[in-house]
């Protein structure tokens, strides 16, 4: 299977976007070669701003440019964008509803060897909690490109979470991405596996194995974490009566929490959450970290069996 890092897809998408929309500007904080905004810089140097190692200024300048009619894509590592510059995002971007698209790369444990200091595991939680913020976690390169274009035409702030490591390309060009719409990738009746980002591929593999073992699992790609596609989630809860969420993020505040909020209010059914279990990561190879912190096909399957057992009736 072809593999592409979502950050690479982002860089390429920016160039296409830049050709179509002259009001698009791109900002980075000395990480353009890692975040891949360098691709845009090479083609449109006059519309690229490097602010140096100054993330608060990065987001603040992006806000000022957006207030002057630009569509500003600002990139750095997710941990710095949403942590160090959180209050700049809150007050200068979310509160003001400005057209800043925060495309943050190197999210999650799969940053790998750089270790816990660089592994964003609460970014979805904090971005999701901000009023006016849209939160997108693309599952592959194709979805990343479509999300970048959708974010550019969406009026208001958007957080796009991207990864460092190459991930399988799951979708073809005909894949339809819409902000706020979850996509059922595989139908099933015994349990629903809801995933985002790199965990979508793991959920698909888990569903295949479960099928061989006689369990019919529905797989849903919840790539928009905010606004949540309540209809698709409620339908899954009512029809399969057991849910599993899987995310490369702390189990507090991310996809698992967001799904729990929806079902508790609308269609209470048992839920098991696969994610980082409220702990910081460490250095290691991406696949070693996913294994150690419980983010594998095996973990999703175990959660599926556990939640099916909890089903009523």
């Amino acid at each position: 299977m072809e593999k592409v890092a979502t950050r690479d897809a982002y860089g390429k998408a920016l160039v296409k976007l830049g050709e179509q929309m002259p009001q698009v500007v791109v900002l980075d904080a000395d990480l353009s070669k890692s975040t891949k905004t360098h691709d845009f810089k090479k083609v449109f140097p006059e519309r690229f701003i490097n602010v140096g190692i100054a993330e608060q200024n990065l987001l603040g300048i992006a806000a000022g440019m957006a207030a002057s009619g630009k569509i500003a894509f600002a990139s750095t590592f997710a941990v710095f964008a949403t942590g160090r510059a959180f209050e700049q995002i809150r007050n200068s971007i979310a509160y003001t509803e400005l057209n800043v698209k925060i495309a943050a790369t190197h999210a999650g444990l799969t940053v790998g060897e750089d270790g816990a200091s660089h592994q964003a595991i609460v970014d979805i939680a904090v971005m999701r909690a901000l009023p006016n913020m849209t939160v997108i976690v693309p599952a592959d390169g194709t979805e990343t490109e479509k999300a970048v274009f959708a974010a550019a035409t969406h009026d208001g702030p958007v957080y796009i979470r991207l990864g460092r490591a190459p991930v399988p390309v799951l979708f073809g060009e005909d894949y339809k991405f819409q902000i706020g719409k979850a996509v059922v990738l595989r139908d099933g009746k015994d349990v629903s596996l809801l995933a985002c980002g790199i965990m979508v591929n793991e959920a698909m593999k888990a569903a295949e194995e479960l099928a061989r073992e006689g369990v019919s699992a529905r797989v849903i790609n919840v790539s928009t974490l905010k606004p949540m596609d309540k209809d698709t989630i409620i339908k899954a809860a009512l029809e399969t009566r057991a849910l599993v969420t899987a995310e490369e993020h702390n189990i507090i505040g991310g996809l698992g929490s967001a799904v729990a909020e929806v079902i508790v209010e609308n269609a209470p059914v048992p839920l098991e959450r696969v994610g980082v279990r409220d702990t910081f990561g460490e250095s290691g190879k991406p696949e070693e970290l996913l294994e150690k912190y419980g983010l594998t096909v095996k973990d999703i399957k175990e959660a599926a069996y556990k939640v099916i057992k909890r089903k009523k009736g």
């Binding site: 701003i49 300048i61 000022g64 002057s68 009619g69 630009k70 500003a72 200068s92």
Partner: peptide, 11 residues
């Protein structure tokens, strides 16, 4: 401060 820098850059 940063916002004003962004506005000036856009100009």
């Amino acid at each position: 401060f940063s916002a004003s820098v962004g506005m000036a850059l856009a100009g």
